[in-house]
């Protein structure tokens, strides 16, 4: 869980850098070039397969773990449940993870499928014809419902990371009086800033 999780964190950074190009005011030129590159570069294609495997692995392991733990706990447990000894996010990683997994499915069906097989308008960038994904996204983000769904999903990812980031280090055996507070602080920052920026893009596009 920890290794796949941390790998997925690095993916988030790469993905975010790409997405931020949506905010460049050039009619989608930079973004579309980036999207074209991502869909055609051999190295990226191989890495992407790895990424899908990682996502699946993370999800399947998480699912099995939740199943195992439910069995270990012995079904419904206490008449009084308390929130005093552990954070809400840490107790609900499976729930958050499931949302994120569904989100990834929807997200890929929405954009990635279009980029791969969809009939999009073409755009000429320096003599190369590329699909105009930017245009498609811009239209989608004019729908407040879609934007709301994206924003909520980013909150879910953030919550998942809020516990998951630091937890991954603990699982890998890294717990140190001096460094753990730094790692945890970084993790909390990461879980707010990265999903925050992701969410800011559709909101920005909706408002402008």
């Amino acid at each position: 869980m920890s290794l796949t999780g941390l790998f997925l964190c690095t993916f988030l950074i790469v993905h975010l850098i790409g997405n931020l190009q949506l905010l460049i005011n050039d009619g989608g030129k930079a973004f579309n070039a980036y999207a074209h590159f991502m869909s055609n570069n051999l190295f990226i294609q191989v890495t992407a397969k790895g990424l899908y495997a990682m996502i699946l692995l993370h999800a399947i392991k998480g699912f099995l773990m939740a199943l195992n733990n439910r069995k270990a706990a012995g079904g419904s447990r206490y008449a009084v449940s308390t929130s005093k000894n552990a954070s809400w996010t840490s107790r609900n990683m499976a729930l958050l993870g499931s949302w994120v997994f569904i989100f990834i499915g929807v997200h890929m069906a929405h954009f990635w499928r279009q980029m791969k097989w969809g009939e999009l308008n073409m755009m000429n960038i320096d003599g190369v014809m590329v699909k105009n994904l930017y245009e498609y996204i811009s239209v989608a983000y004019e729908n407040p419902l879609i934007v709301a769904f994206y924003v909520i999903s980013m909150i879910m990812i953030g919550a998942h990371l809020w516990h998951g980031f630091g937890s991954a280090f603990q699982t890998l055996g890294i717990n140190h009086k001096k460094y753990t507070p730094i790692i945890d602080g970084f993790g909390k920052g990461f879980s707010v800033i990265i999903p925050g920026l992701f969410a800011a893009i559709p909101v920005w596009m909706l408002l402008t």
Binding site: N69, A72, N85, S87, S90, H163, T171
Partner: peptide
């Protein structure tokens, strides 16, 4: 023994 796996809730 059938104990669950740690998900680092810290409880």
């Amino acid at each position: 023994e059938g104990f669950g796996m740690c998900s680092n809730t810290g409880a």
